[in-house]
Computed example of a mutant assay.
Amino acid sequence: MNLPGARRLKSLLHALAFFLAAAAALVAASIVARHFPGWPEEIVIGGIGVLLTLALTAAFLRWDRKRFSDIGLAWDRRTHMRFLVGLAIGCALVALHAAIVASTGQVSWTRNTQVDATGIAVAALGYGLLALREEVAFRGYPLRTLLPAFGVVGAQLMVMTIFVAEHRLGGATWSNAVLGSGLGALVFSMAALVTRGIALPLGLHAAWNFGDWMRGGKGDHGMWTMRIEAAHSAHVNEVAMVAYVSVMLLTLFCLAALYRRNQITEGKGDRGIRS
C-alpha cells in the first residue's frame, strides 16, 4: 500500500516517537532495578519494561484511534499454540547452532552445579520478560505503523536499525549488534508479519535467549559452562558467527516464503470475491 507523503511522514514520526518513549521506559526500568539489588535484574527490568511499554502502546493506539487487535496484540484461540510453536523452533535453532559449534571438536560443556532448578526458573522468567518487552516495543506498534507506509522491506529495515542501535547502546559490540541482533530483528519481524501477532516471534526470541543462556553462551552462570581451547578460540568464534548467520538466514528465508504464500493466497481469495 502506498500512502501519500504526508501520511508516510506521520507514520514515521509516530513510530520514532514510540521508539524514543520505549527507550526512555527501558532506562527508567534499569534505574528502578538498581534499587532492588537482591532481585534478579532480568526480572525487574523485564517486568517493569513490559508494563511501561504496554502502557505506551495503549497511549499511542488511543492517539491513532486504533485497538490492540489492529497491531496483533490481542489474544485469540491460536495465540498459545503459536507461542509454543515459536518455542519449539527457537529450541531447535539453538540445538542446531550448538551442534555446528561442537563439530569443531574444540568446545566442551560441563554442568554448572551452582545453578539449580530455582536458578533455571528465574532465568526462564527473566529472559521471557525481556523478550516480551522487546517484541511489544519493536514488533507491535512501530512495525504495524510503518508497514502500510513503507512496505515490508522498508518497515523491517527501520525496525532493525533501531533494534541494532538499542543493543549497541546497551553494550553489545558492533558485530554482535549488527549481525546478531540485526538478523534476529529481521527473523522476529517476519515471524510477526506471517502470523500477524507477536506470539510466534516471542516464542522464538525467548527460546533462543534462554537456550543460549542454558548452554553457557551468556557467560559462566548458565546451566552449562562452555569451555573453548584458548589456541582455537578465534576459529570457534568464527564458526559460531557463520553458523548463526546461516541459521538465521535460513529461518528468514522460510518465513519470507510463508509470508509470500499467504499474500498470494489472500490475493486469489480477494479476486474470487470481486468476481
Rank of each mutant, 00 (worst) to 15 (best):
R8G: 00
L9F: 12
K10R: 11
A23S: 09
S30H: 14
S30F: 15
S30N: 09
S30E: 14
I31D: 12
F36S: 03
E41K: 12
E42G: 15
G46C: 07
G49T: 07
V50M: 06
V50F: 05
L54V: 03
F60Q: 04
L61S: 00
R62A: 13
R62T: 09
G72E: 04
L87P: 01
V94P: 09
L96K: 09
S103L: 06
T104F: 02
W109G: 05
T110A: 15
Q114R: 14
D116A: 03
T118I: 03
I120N: 03
V122K: 11
V122E: 14
A131D: 10
V136W: 12
A137H: 10
F138R: 07
T145C: 08
V152A: 11
V153H: 01
A155P: 09
M158Q: 13
M160R: 15
V164Y: 00
A165I: 03
A165R: 13
V178L: 09
S181C: 11
L183G: 09
A185V: 00
A185F: 01
I198H: 07
G203P: 06
L204C: 07
H205L: 13
H205W: 02
A207I: 03
G211W: 00
M214R: 15
M223P: 11
T225I: 14
T225Y: 12
T225C: 13
M226F: 05
A230R: 06
N237Y: 12
N237T: 11
S246I: 12
V247W: 10
M248H: 14
M248W: 15
R260F: 11
N262F: 14
I264S: 06
G269A: 15
